[in-house]
């Protein structure tokens, strides 16, 4: 399921509040600041730090 474009514009990282980059093929949002990767499940971004992974 595609992620709503407008939602992408308004979401920020809950930790550092930097903007996010949608990596569609991996179904993740990657924070431009701290690098945390937030999963997108069934078109819903999961903006929970506990569920985010650090970038490699």
């Amino acid at each position: 399921m595609a992620l709503d474009e407008r939602l992408m514009e308004i979401l920020v990282c809950p930790t550092c509040r930097s903007s996010l980059d949608h990596k569609e093929r991996r179904h993740v949002l990657v924070c431009a600041g701290c690098g945390l990767q937030f999963p997108v499940r069934d078109g819903i971004p999961v903006m929970l730090v506990d569920e985010a992974k650090p970038s490699r």
Binding site: V12, C13, P14, M47
Partner: peptide, 15 residues
Amino acid sequence: IRWEEASADALALED
């Protein structure tokens, strides 16, 4: 409506 899984104490929205 735009849905987001998030905790009330760490909202992923701009100021």
